[in-house]
Amino acid sequence: MSNRATNLLVPIISVILGLLVGAVIMLVSGYDPLKGYAALWNGIFGDLYTIGETIRQITPYLLAGLAVAFAFRSGLFNIGVEGQLIVGWFAAAYVGVAVELPKIIHLPLAILAAAVAGAIWGFVPGLLKAKFRVHEVIVTIMMNYIALHVTNALIRTVSDGGDRTGNIYASASLRSEFLQNLTEFSRLHFGIIIALVMVGVMWLILEKTTLGFELKAVGFNQNASQYAGMNVNKNIILAMVISGAFAGLGGAMEALGTFEYVSSKGGFTGIGFDGIAVALLGMNTPLGVVFGATLFGSLKYGALNMPNAAGIPIEIVEIVIAVIIFFVASGYIIRLLLLRASAKKKEAK
């Protein structure tokens, strides 16, 4: 079996195993897995409305996945996507409520604000990694909590002690009557187009620019890149900044498209952490992220139908996602088993 085929098989096998484990858990805890997965399927594809909502849910997952994948390609593990997304969410919503401008200026400005906020949040761990060799995993985890508490405090200040801002002006909104009419008035918005464009942008940066070449080189081998005359520190910082900007855009999708406001949060949104799963499943490629985001976004939205239609808690889907991550991360063992299986086949021939 070729290397490429095994690489593709690992995520597919992981997803199947994940769904199987989910079925076993449902069975053991006294639910009907068939009924459960049927409810999940209807929750995703049931009618035009649910399809619209599913695509809406996929949008931030695309950007969160891109953020994680982009950093991964440069050898960095950005667990801080969650925090970068939260500050992006706040920045976009703030620009959305603070001023009223013509749409052609306001909307891009709000989106840009989110990207910049996320980029700044990514810059800090990038700088610390480049200058002090501090491991980015710990710093980004800490930055997540700082983001959570700081935005909550800012929301209180902006809203005079309330726990959410007002709705953004229509001139900053991504809502689209056209898309809503198409999908029986779901909350589907233009953000999906932005997210897909960003998939192209990531592909372009990585495959067609010098910057992308350097970033990937740094990801493969820092010493060799240094020896080849690349500025490793600059590339590390840039990778985190761009990754943060993607994550910030993910926040803008929620601020300008889905919710049109920002409210203070008791805990994390989870989108950033699921972004890790998306990137892993997509093997850190732009196209792979599209598949990963589609799968996990659909599962997440479809799960909302499970309590009503089958009486099963929505958490079952999160269990499935966690198990899938386990299997993808343990790809070594799946590869080993595949290799043995194909070796046996050869012998039999």
Binding site: I79, E315, I319, A322, A329, I333
Partner: peptide
Amino acid sequence: FRADQVVSGVAINLLAAAL
């Protein structure tokens, strides 16, 4: 299984919260 230890940890967190 030689998995990425950080990824495995993330999975543990997701799994525990959900389960």
